[in-house]
Design a protein around this nucleic acid. Structure first.
Length: 502
RNA sequence: GCUCCGGUGGUGUAGUCCGGUCAAGCAUAUCGGCCUUUCGAGCCGACGACCCGGGUCCAAAUCCCGGCCGGAGCACCA
């Protein structure tokens, strides 16, 4: 029952605001020149769907406020570097349309880190320890200093020089930044700033053996790169606390920190070490294997990067932990690709049925039924005569003995091993055949006749569907097709496609 | 164990700072209807949530306390 207002004055209801576009909250302390922010991945592999959040949130704010977005590649652990990743990360960001303005590579900045450590030692805020780390840790837990903590700056400086010049072996010495041994959170107490590494770095080789730890290099770089805002995952909240000590010792202005919650991504493989191993032993076809959650895989499956952006913008920057929803991402993607996806028939698990027919039937099947562009009024045209018609075994099983409509061709009866034409739509024949049956309720199924090629679809769950595909689809390579009644598929070559989503 | 941070429908969120307009909005999913020669898109409708318990208050999703649950950190990883 409509209200009087709805009935009499529908225009009153027109101006109620509809579905306001989701928007990220404004950032505090933004000055007129905009913001300076950074993204700081480690080059262990290409980016995956989890990294995309960091990239998109930063990029969205850069677009809003202007300024700089620095891509800072954090390669201070040579054990965990994939040399190709330096480039792959940049390619991934370009695909996401994330417009970083600068690239900084930490392994080019050792001298800065060394100089800064020296300064901290000089002002009594750092020391070089040789106490075994088990002892260091256990004392930290109890809030007790190791003896080196009491050394004079001069002694520490001397040890630091020895460390840098290679007089200690791996594991023998490490440099520490003082925080507060009575800090209630033991995780925040004195932290290691440099350690000795004896494996070569892919970029700088064995030029250095004393490597900064992430908490040290990050603090130094965040200051010298002039960051105004830092947006990162909340797994860094304790790190932020540590880094703030360095800022305080040097009297530096702190950026504004924002930590978003953890996103759990289910049904996907993200761990770089696992992927690398899988690629090496042949389990995965590469970084873009459809089972993986890498951006390369999503790209190959035909996910439009805008749908990923929309997903993360709508998720916001809350600190609650969330579960990534593939369904919502798929829904966003569907809205983008549906109008531009050509329709084709793919018959999975095909069954061939004999077709004894004396005439000829013509089918005109629209390629882009939902497009409003005149230029998209294209059809696949087939003339069907005696021979065989292919349908899926599913449709065969369900409709054997019954009536179906072969989409855009006509009505047919399915028999044990043949298929009979019973009329085209709205013709006298059909009306006679079963006048009481509402024609619209007949199952509409897809079909093939002669013009097809064998085709494989690789699905994200690792399954492979094998069937037959309209040959015409091969004219639409490397774009997402909608295989009618099956799902969206990115055709990657004449024999294979990657499943996008339903 | 210690230290922090959180808990709004199945999922993702809005609202929480500054209590009332929130018997809670949106999206997605599911179900139903309409339209359509796709199981898509579109349109309409339904379903479904403030972790629990106290307290303050005329009034609590919102403030306070306790509990429960979840997450993060406690690396010579980032």
């Amino acid at each position: 029952m409509k209200s009087i207002v709805e009935k009499e004055f529908p225009e009153w209801l027109q101006n109620t605001p509809k579905e306001t576009e989701k928007r990220l909250p404004d950032l505090p302390n933004v000055e007129k020149n905009g913001v300076i922010m950074r993204m700081a991945p480690s080059p262990s592999g290409p980016l995956h769907i989890g990294h995309a959040r960091m990239a998109i949130l930063n990029d969205e704010y850069l677009r809003r406020y202007g300024g700089k977005l620095i891509l800072r590649i954090e390669d201070t652990n040579p054990a965990n570097i994939e040399p190709d990743a330096y480039q792959m990360i940049q390619d991934d960001l370009k695909w996401l349309d994330v417009k970083y303005t600068d690239v900084v590579v930490q392994s080019e900045r050792f001298q800065i880190y060394y100089d800064e450590m020296k300064k901290l030692i000089e002002i009594g805020k750092g020391y070089v320890a040789t106490t075994p780390t088990e002892e260091f840790k256990s004392r930290k837990q109890r809030g007790i200093p190791v003896i080196e903590r009491e050394q004079t700056p001069e002694e520490n400086l001397e040890r630091w020089d020895k460390m840098v010049s290679g007089e200690y072996e791996k594991g023998e010495a490490y440099a520490v930044v003082k925080t507060d041994l009575s800090h209630p959170n033991p995780a925040i107490r004195d932290f290691i700033a440099f350690r000795i590494i004896d494996i070569p770095h892919p970029l700088v080789g064995d030029k250095f053996s004393v490597y900064p730890m992430m908490n040290f290099s990050v603090a130094i770089d965040d200051h010298y790169l002039g960051l105004t805002h830092v947006i990162r995952g909340k797994d860094h909240t304790a790190n932020t606390e540590k880094q703030k000590y360095i800022f305080a010792y040097r009297g530096w202005k702190l950026p504004y920190y924002l930590h978003y919650g953890k996103v759990s991504i289910e049904n996907s493989i993200l761990k770089t070490s696992l992927i690398k191993k899988g690629i090496r032993n042949g389990e995965f076809s590469g970084w873009d294997d459809p089972r993986l959650g890498t951006l390369l895989a999503l790209k190959k499956r035909g996910i439009n990067p805008l749908s990923i952006r929309k997903y993360y913008v709508e998720s916001g920057i809350g600190s609650v932990d969330t579960t990534f929803s593939w369904e919502i991402l798929y829904s966003f993607n569907r809205k983008i690709i549906d109008p531009v996806s050509p329709r084709h028939f793919f018959v999975n698990n095909p069954v061939s049925l004999r077709f004894d027919f004396d005439g000829a039937l013509k089918a005109e099947i629209p390629l882009f039924p939902t497009s409003s562009k005149q230029s998209d009024r294209k059809y696949r045209e087939y003339v069907v005569k005696r021979g065989s018609i292919i349908i899926t075994s599913d449709d065969y099983q369900k409709n054997i003995g019954g009536l179906v409509r072969l989409k855009d061709l006509g009505y047919f009866k399915i028999n044990e091993d043949s298929i009979e034409f019973v009329g085209a739509e709205m013709t006298e024949d059909v009306q006679k055949w079963n006048p009481s049956r509402p024609l619209g309720k007949v199952p509409i199924i897809h079909w093939l006749y002669q013009n097809f090629v064998p085709f494989k679809v690789f699905r994200p769950d690792g399954k492979i569907d094998e069937g037959l595909l309209e040959r015409n689809a091969l004219d639409y390579m490397e774009i997402v097709n909608q295989f009618e009644r099956y799902g969206y598929v990115n055709i990657i070559n004449e024999k294979e496609g990657y499943f996008t989503h339903p």
